[in-house]
Design a protein around this nucleic acid. Structure first.
Lengths: 202, 202, 202, 202
DNA sequence: AATGAATGAGAGTTCATTCAT
DNA sequence: TATGAATGAACTCTCATTCAT
């Protein structure tokens, strides 16, 4: 039992360390030795807990996405109106970024790096979270409170927008008000989904 | 004259090769030797035309952004209404992605990779293009046909949305209709900028 | 303890190997891979013990000069007369060359090679040893047993002479009697410092 | 005839350029392209006049040693007393260094560099010049005005001393008075060859 | 004769991964 | 279980030399 606890704890420590190192250097530029040093374990120990460097990133993203998905689920649970749910999704996502910028950096920045295979596996891990967003859109359309745009296209659009805004915030040293931006995006997308675009007068 | 033509032609051939290789492996995973092989020149020849590997990416992005900016400028020139301009920007951007998917892959995927310095230089090269988008938004607000949301926030949102949709299209093997998605995005954003979100009935 | 011993031993083995390889090919022409092969370690192992190729030469010279300086100090300690000290310095220096020709080769031949920075650092490592020689000259002048020639100029002259003789011996395959040459040099310099040159009869 | 003149002139220009470049960067660090640029010829042109980079250094040293040997011969011709000849040799050698420091740098510094074969060929080129020095010593001994020390050993000693003093002067930015040093060396060696070292009082 | 673009072998160095302790 | 020294393949970049023009 102590053993088990010790193991899980060390695994977590390595993941924490990886999170910090990947965030500050980028996944490809980071070295396993650096992660080991940050976690205060030997290089070889990493390989007792993870298959290889790729696996380290994969398990890290997995853990973060699990936690994020759970928290998001709780935040959305009490809300009825899909439009409110969408606004909450947008606000909550950016609030998470604001509260855990280093973790966010990994999720956002590194997700697209590294070779083909790794990228595909990472995308797989994002699926449930993206599914929640798409579910909100589908529900809104079904209930008739959102226009019947393609939910997949809109899901990509919203996710891309969140990503880009978060990235800009991170890269610019967190210098602008992310909460205010969240409101603007909620406004923009809920508005855009609410009614057809006005025709420019001929 | 033949010399000059030969030089420019070979430079272009190397850039083409780099575009293909970077697109398929990612900038960091790609090797200079691979680019050389793809361009059918010796490794050392690359360095007669480019300072180093970073420079190769920089010049590649520079060329693509120049061309893209110019084409976009022409596409927007005859349009008056900022809302129409925005719709055109969205459609045209994704049309370019559709027509030159490999080039797009580099622009979209690699832009965020590599070390700090390179990233900053790449961002610099994107500036004029992003400036066009923001200009449209500012004009729309000034003319009173768009709601006064923060143009920078909205610019990031739109660009992120375009990026993500394009990326999804590229990663999924170009299996869905990008043109249709473009219409949806144009609709979504022009709608979202046109009027305030409907209040959920109290 | 075994570890420590193992480490120091391996470091020494690499230095030995570097000494041999640098002596036979010259520092610039020698390759790290060659040193590694000679030391029976992998290429990368070199970099666990030394910062880079330059550092390898620096630490090698440092070790040799330390040992040489210490041994010379002991050889000179019991001697009183500065003229005797000078003769001993000359004899002992060439004896060391004779006993460790490979080490000498590095010290003598490579000292002037490589880039500006490395050269300066190497010169720094020679300083204490050259200082001993100059000290003898200054003492001799102060005690009135040597003529008041510029000690720096004479120091350079003597060191250059030793260097050249040693080099000739090494390059010619150690075919002449270095000990006899040592006596001749001791005779020459002690004589030259003892009294003014005879005027040629007019 | 014009052709011939043109050829010789260009060859000389390349040698001049090589002299400057080798002096400032060292033979091994200098590049053929750099020499070509300095000589205002194309890279390939170098190879119309010299077999390869090594040959370039060899022919350069050859030309310099020829000139130096001729000039030294003329300086020594009117002198009778071998002791005066030796003093003149020392003074004249350092005067040449002082007047042509860049050429001297090449002769002195680069002579010991590069691989085994090149080194041997360079030594060959120095032979006649060193022979003059040795001839003076042999003559002095034969005439009974110098002590019968081994002329080869003494020749090496004197040449090494000259080399080292010149090197120190060059490396320290020519900051001390080389002429004064020349006098000191002449004094030292002529003195040392004149009589036996004084015995330290028993 | 002269050019200079092209070549490609080879250098130093890094780092994911292994394995004897 | 944990270590960290050792490995060696792989990388980017340089440069002496060649050869089509």
């Amino acid at each position: 039992m102590v053993r088990e606890a010790g193991r899980a704890e060390k695994r977590a420590r390595i993941l924490e360390a990886a999170s910090r190192v990947f965030a500050s250097k980028g996944f490809l530029s980071a070295t396993v030795a650096e992660v080991a040093r940050e976690a205060k374990v030997a290089d070889g120990t990493i390989y007792l807990y993870f298959r290889n460097k790729d696996d380290l990133l994969l398990r890290l993203v997995e853990a973060r996405m699990d936690a994020l998905g759970r928290a998001m689920g709780e935040a959305l649970a009490p809300i009825e109106d899909p439009r409110e749910k969408l606004a909450t999704f947008i606000r909550f996502h950016l609030k998470m970024v604001e509260e855990s910028p280093l973790e966010a950096q990994v999720l956002i920045v590194e997700l697209r790096q590294s070779g083909r295979d790794l990228k595909r596996e990472l995308a797989e891990l994002m699926r449930p979270y993206l599914g929640m967003l798409q579910g909100i859109l589908e529900e809104g359309i079904a209930k008739g409170v959102m226009r019947p745009l393609d939910p997949r296209a809109v899901r990509h659009a919203i996710f891309g927008a969140l990503d880009e805004v978060a990235l800009a915030w991170l890269l610019r040293g967190r210098r602008f008000d992310l909460g205010r931006n969240a409101e603007q995006l909620a406004d923009l997308f809920v508005g855009g989904l609410g009614q057809p675009p006005p025709r420019s007068t001929p």
